[in-house]
Amino acid sequence: MLIYTATKLTPILESHDMQATFNFYTEILNFTCAAKLDDLSWFSLQKDDIEIMFSIPNTHRNTPKPVMSGSLYIKTNEITTLWENLKNKCEICYPLENFEYGMREFAIFDNNGYLLQFGQEL
């Protein structure tokens, strides 16, 4: 059995429009830039304890558009306020609702089509 300590998970997502992605996360979702390359081919964004990195597509993978089979799930203590601020600024996947598994949540798509879910425990 492999034994090690994992200290953090930071997704690195690809974007074909790095400037639009940078603007979406900083202007709409209020992330801040933690680090970036001058040509904007890579950057790291933070919001409280969350970090997401973006890079231009890897030429070895030859992916014509960004793909992710899942979603990024972000927990918050201000779900209603967040919904009110985002519902008219983003493409909605599903609106704010309460779920039987004890979460109040909604989901949006970012400018790349990545699914971002936001939830708060009921």
Rank of each mutant, 00 (worst) to 15 (best):
2 L>I: 12
2 L>Q: 11
3 I>W: 09
4 Y>S: 12
4 Y>P: 09
4 Y>Q: 12
4 Y>N: 13
4 Y>K: 11
5 T>R: 08
5 T>M: 11
7 T>K: 09
9 L>F: 09
10 T>H: 01
10 T>W: 01
10 T>Y: 03
13 L>F: 09
15 S>Y: 08
17 D>V: 08
17 D>Q: 11
19 Q>T: 15
19 Q>C: 08
19 Q>D: 14
21 T>Y: 01
21 T>I: 04
23 N>S: 14
25 Y>I: 02
29 L>K: 03
31 F>V: 00
31 F>G: 00
32 T>P: 00
34 A>Q: 14
35 A>K: 15
36 K>C: 12
39 D>S: 05
39 D>N: 08
40 L>Q: 10
40 L>W: 10
41 S>W: 05
42 W>Y: 15
42 W>H: 11
43 F>I: 08
44 S>G: 13
44 S>P: 07
47 K>A: 12
50 I>Y: 05
50 I>C: 10
50 I>E: 05
50 I>A: 10
50 I>K: 03
51 E>A: 10
52 I>L: 10
52 I>V: 07
52 I>Y: 04
52 I>W: 06
52 I>P: 00
53 M>G: 08
54 F>W: 10
56 I>N: 06
57 P>N: 13
57 P>W: 09
57 P>Y: 10
57 P>A: 12
58 N>A: 04
59 T>G: 06
59 T>P: 08
59 T>E: 09
60 H>S: 09
60 H>G: 11
61 R>C: 10
61 R>I: 12
63 T>E: 15
64 P>Q: 14
65 K>I: 13
68 M>N: 15
69 S>K: 14
72 L>D: 01
74 I>N: 01
76 T>F: 03
77 N>S: 07
78 E>Y: 04
78 E>V: 05
79 I>S: 06
79 I>Q: 05
81 T>S: 09
83 W>P: 01
86 L>P: 10
88 N>S: 14
88 N>K: 12
93 C>R: 11
94 Y>P: 03
95 P>G: 11
95 P>C: 08
100 E>Y: 00
100 E>L: 03
100 E>I: 00
101 Y>L: 00
102 G>K: 00
103 M>R: 02
104 R>E: 06
104 R>L: 04
107 A>I: 00
110 D>V: 05
111 N>P: 06
111 N>V: 11
111 N>F: 03
112 N>D: 13
112 N>M: 13
112 N>W: 10
113 G>K: 10
114 Y>K: 06
115 L>V: 08
116 L>Y: 06
117 Q>D: 03
117 Q>R: 04
118 F>D: 00
118 F>W: 02
118 F>H: 02
119 G>C: 07
119 G>P: 02
121 E>P: 01
